[in-house]
Design a protein around this nucleic acid. Structure first.
Lengths: 144, 144
DNA sequence: CTTAATGCAAAGGCTTTGCAGAGAC
DNA sequence: GTCTCTGCAAAGCCTTTGCATTAAG
């Protein structure tokens, strides 16, 4: 369940700062866009969308910014498609459907889902997150 | 739990045929290697390993073959690392630890793990598989 | 003035594709 | 001879990097 939200410029600025991110013009614009859409966007999606607005942002900055946001926990990177990374403004625990044919990601609310019996992480390692991706294929025909 | 297994040439041939795959020399060699190692190998890993044997296989053929195997359910593609696809000779239900720093995948036996409360797939879609990837980070320091 | 952020273009890594040559039947 | 597979090289796509320019304080 993505929380679609139109933050005011002040709220956005505060949000970035809370995450230790220096709120520059481009970063604010990218963040605004991500939270307003609340979809799963690829870097290129963001690049296209942000450049439809007044603010112009280069591809390098889009990549750097998305990486920065993910690193600081403002958004989350979703590895589901071998060809590209999706960025998800929803950092609450939730899972994903992934439509193999269309490459579309859909949220699965974590409420009601219970995963039990997972072994503890080995040694000195720390669990950073649990990704659950359910691959879907449309149509009636079995794969083979 | 990967099932390490040294198939005889006849068994391998039969295995491929059971999956509707024409058992050519290169394909047999790649399959042999995958099942004997029973690790999570990238296409390039396979390329390097197979060319240490007598049989020489081009990169294109390695990619095509791995794609073919995965398509026919002989092996399984694991999308965990944004940079490359891993191929897993274990097609039984199981999950993965993924060490973010080293890029290493480790198996989690599905026995004992229970996932409940997942919503049904939408519409006409069919569940093709459930991928569970637990991201690990080594060291004591929290991310931020 | 000093430090950080941005843009541009080039480079990089993984994977796919086009097409010619080799192999199987 | 026909159909399939293989190899090579080139192309493609997503992403990162190097470096000069610009903005911020």
């Amino acid at each position: 369940m993505l929380t679609k939200r139109n933050y005011s410029p002040e709220e956005l600025t505060a949000l970035l700062q809370e995450h230790g991110i220096n709120p520059t013009g481009q970063r604010l614009e990218i963040a605004r866009l991500l939270f307003a859409r609340a979809e799963h966007l690829s870097a290129d999606d963001v690049f296209v969308l942000v450049n439809k607005t007044v603010t112009k942002v280069s591809k390098a900055t889009v990549y750097n910014t998305l990486g920065l946001f993910a690193e600081h926990g403002l958004i989350r990177a979703v590895i589901a498609d071998p060809n590209k990374v999706f960025y998800d403004p929803n950092t609450a625990a939730h899972y994903h459907f992934y439509d193999v044919a269309s490459g579309r990601l859909t949220d699965i609310d974590a409420d009601g889902v219970r995963i039990s019996g997972l072994p503890p992480p080995p040694d000195d390692a720390r669990m950073e997150g649990v990704d659950v991706i359910i691959r879907l294929r449309r149509g009636d025909r079995p794969v083979h």
